[in-house]
Amino acid sequence: MKYVVLIIDGASGWPAEGLGGKTSLEAAKTPNLDQMARRATVGLAGTVPVGMEPSSACACMSVLGYNPKVFYKGRAAIEARSLEIPIAADETVFRANLVTIENGRMADYSAGHIGSNESAELIRFLDEKLGTPELSLHPGVGYRHILKLKGRPETLKAACTPPHDIPGQPVEDYLPRGEGSDILRNIMAASAELLKDHPVNRDRIARGEKPATSLWLFWGSGQLPNMPSFKDRYGLSAAITSGVDLLRGLGQMQGMDVLCIQGVTDNADNDYAFQMEQALGALETYDMVVVHVEAPDEAGHAGDAEGKVKAIEMIDRDMVGRLREYSRDKLRALIMPDHPTPLKIRTHAAEPVPFMIWGSGVRTSGARRFTEADAKGTGVTVAEAHNIMSMVVRG
């Protein structure tokens, strides 16, 4: 038996006025997902434990079969693991987004989805200007980067707000606050001064693109937890493909190999077809391949109803369609979002999401489509989504 896990990041959501009162999954034309749903176990799963942040870190950890209440110690360290940034016992790390702040408001949490090449140039520049033996900046993917601090454990007590939670809001109300926040605020302020006239930003403005006006620090964490490997836990060799550091880091923490596939990105320009083609090809080597797609989540954060629906439709056509072509008798697949990203609030919610287990030996639960309503209608619920992986692997 071979296994595929397809995580459609942020695809779930709420009914939206711009979609005629439908959710993005309901509005999207998804013939492949819907055909599979009719022959699958479909239900609702709680991916975010009560009281925990509705982040992809918690939610994807659940999808991959690990209880966040036990293993989640902070997101930045997971991303640092993907970038092979070591974290000593006296060091802390923070996610450092490049953002666009205009007239004191959060204009764009991703600096116009700045590309990795331009953003790496900016991060190296900031590290040159701000870096010390106790402070270093490390480029990641797109707008997402890492700040590492030595000897400042109090910074982990600072209350920080993700920039994608505050679109259009006055940033002064959401700067780091409380114990340990001063150093974070100072770094952010210094970055804003340094980035004002950088050539990369001048070029972006000339092209009509949003400049990266500041670093925004959040999701601080310390060292990684010790996690049992996926092989030890489930008896399967596994690999993962994703356009974001977080998922690659999670996979590495679980002993998965990372598939480096050309054209895999963190946005709508992702090569969906090639990503799934290469993932299915990797099943010749691995028992399981995890395929993570970020585009629906990014569209949700942008409040882009059309873009989110289109991303879901592209995934259905170019990824799920290929998955259906793989022999159903030799494959079992888990397909689900990690969390909702409702268009109305443009950030994550902690509500249950639809899931589907399809393939060899799987019972049908009566769903007609892969939507929130159909999933709820089956009456199948998994309160803690980290238990789903056992359902997939052990039947």
Rank of each mutant, 00 (worst) to 15 (best):
S12A: 15
P176W: 00
F230L: 12
S62R: 00
A299I: 01
V392G: 09
E351I: 02
D245C: 10
L195F: 13
M253R: 01
I7T: 01
I388V: 13
L126G: 09
T23C: 12
P86R: 10
K376L: 14
N270H: 10
P163G: 11
K157C: 10
G178D: 03
D304F: 04
A16W: 07
R394T: 05
A238P: 03
A311R: 00
K196V: 14
V99H: 10
I345P: 09
P342C: 05
T100S: 13
K344R: 15
T347Y: 14
P54T: 08
T213Q: 13
T285Y: 15
Y286N: 10
C58V: 15
T30S: 09
V50A: 13
K344C: 15
K196W: 03
L195H: 03
A96M: 04
I345D: 04
T241R: 04
G366K: 06
R369Q: 14
A350M: 15
A383D: 06
L64R: 08
P211D: 05
D203F: 08
V171Q: 01
Q262T: 13
G303P: 05
A89V: 01
K231D: 10
P199N: 09
E128F: 09
I345T: 14
R144H: 12
T265H: 12
G142I: 01
G361M: 07
S136I: 00
N103T: 15
A96N: 07
A282E: 10
A299V: 00
V171D: 04
V171I: 15
A45F: 09
A11D: 01
V200Y: 05
A282Y: 11
P340H: 05
N97V: 10
A383P: 06
Y143N: 04
S365C: 13
L184Y: 03
P342N: 02
L334E: 01
M288C: 11
G46F: 12
V141F: 08
P54A: 06
P228E: 01
A282T: 08
G300H: 04
F125S: 08
L215E: 07
G10I: 00
N270Q: 03
E154G: 12
G74H: 05
A57F: 10
D108A: 08
A333I: 00
V50M: 07
V353L: 09
H292E: 04
E179N: 12
V4C: 02
S214G: 07
H164K: 03
V99N: 06
E17P: 09
